[in-house]
């Protein structure tokens, strides 16, 4: 306890050294949108210490969960636009409007850094009566509703991937909802579900150990981490219009934050993402590092929102039309 305390003091002392007038002159609050131990949490806790070195300030990270992340977004948008509250989130807020989860999304924020994106992959239980995507499609068409797909609720990655598949292929499956991809992948190994659209990073260890079998990457090219798994476009080139697509992680501040503060944060996080240890971590987990900020990041977010909103809307799982929020249909 005592060392913890002196450690905390030492950390404070260490970080508060630069002149006080300059940002950051006090601790910065980092609101993590998802729970401790999840992908977003791990990525943020791994990159932030590197960014702190550059920033010369302490970022105190807290998990604020609930409401598919909407509670954290709402909290962060209610704070002052002074750069002392960072929102550390994933892709979900971009779907809040069409999913009827409130009217605040990343358009009320400025991206500090879009750190990385994940590659979706279709994995199956080892006992499933198919080994490739084509065999799966054939099997499902012969046995409608018998194959159980894992899901994480409407708007989650599995639902979007399933919607994407269904937009080009006729697939009637039973979607069994789970709390997150972790529990769903556990259920996949136990045979409670047959197929799971997951993030490569979350499933890669189980695939390598041969506990689940990969069917196809939802991407346009094969991935270094699993070179033998074919991209979906090999069998179905029609999916190229939607891809590349995937979940992402980013750090945001409220709109209206002074430009020099945003610049300083962006610079710090860009340096943090560049760190070799962090790059290694992202590689190991199968994430594609993006490290973009400013207009580039904004463009990425806009495109992501437009593609995905219309996809879920056309699949009939959205509550409102993207048109209502002036989200243009992708060209």
């Amino acid at each position: 306890m005592k060392t913890l305390f002196t450690g905390a003091l030492a950390a404070l002392a260490f970080t508060a050294a630069p002149a006080l007038a300059e940002y950051p002159e006090k601790e910065i609050q980092g609101i993590i949108q998802w729970g401790a131990g999840g992908s977003t949490d791990t990525v943020m806790r791994a990159v932030t210490p590197h960014a702190e070195e550059m920033l010369g300030g302490k970022v105190v990270m807290q998990n604020m969960t609930g409401g598919v992340g909407a509670i954290a977004v709402k909290f962060a948008s209610a704070q002052d636009a002074d750069g002392y509250t960072l929102l550390m989130g994933a892709e979900n807020p971009l779907l809040y409007k069409v999913m009827g989860l409130g009217d605040i999304d990343y358009s009320s924020f400025v991206p500090v850094n879009v750190i990385a994106r994940g590659v979706p992959i279709l994995v199956a239980n080892n006992d499933a009566p198919f080994d490739t995507l084509e065999e799966m499609v054939a099997y499902i068409q012969e046995n409608p509703n018998e194959v159980k797909f894992g899901s994480t609720g409407p708007g989650g990655l599995p639902s979007v991937v399933t919607a994407m598949l269904q937009s080009e292929i006729e697939l009637t499956v039973t979607a069994v909802p789970y709390d997150g991809d972790g529990p769903a992948l556990t259920a996949l190994q136990g045979g409670a579900i047959d197929v799971m659209p997951a993030v490569l990073g979350a499933s890669i260890e189980a695939i390598k150990a041969g506990r689940i079998k990969p069917l196809a990457l939802i991407d346009t090219q094969a991935n270094e981490a699993l070179p033998d798994v074919p991209p979906i476009t090999e069998a179905y080139p029609a999916f190229e219009t939607y891809l590349p697509w995937g979940p992402f992680f980013g750090v945001f501040v409220k709109e209206g934050t002074p430009d020099d503060v945003v610049a300083k944060l962006s610079e710090a996080y860009a340096a943090g993402v560049e760190n070799a240890d962090f790059q290694q971590l992202m590689d190991d987990r199968g994430f594609q590092v993006m490290n973009i900020s400013g207009d580039e990041a904004q463009e990425f977010l806009d495109k992501w929102q437009s593609v995905t909103s219309w996809l879920v809307y056309d699949a009939g799982i959205a509550k409102a039309s993207p048109e209502e929020f002036d989200i243009p249909r992708p060209e």
Binding site: A36, R45, K208, L281, D284, R285
Partner: peptide, 16 residues
């Protein structure tokens, strides 16, 4: 769950 996250950060890959 959090210890798994910590192991990732420390460069291990907890899994089978």
């Amino acid at each position: 769950a959090i210890i798994i996250g910590a192991m990732f950060i420390h460069g291990l890959n907890p899994g089978p």
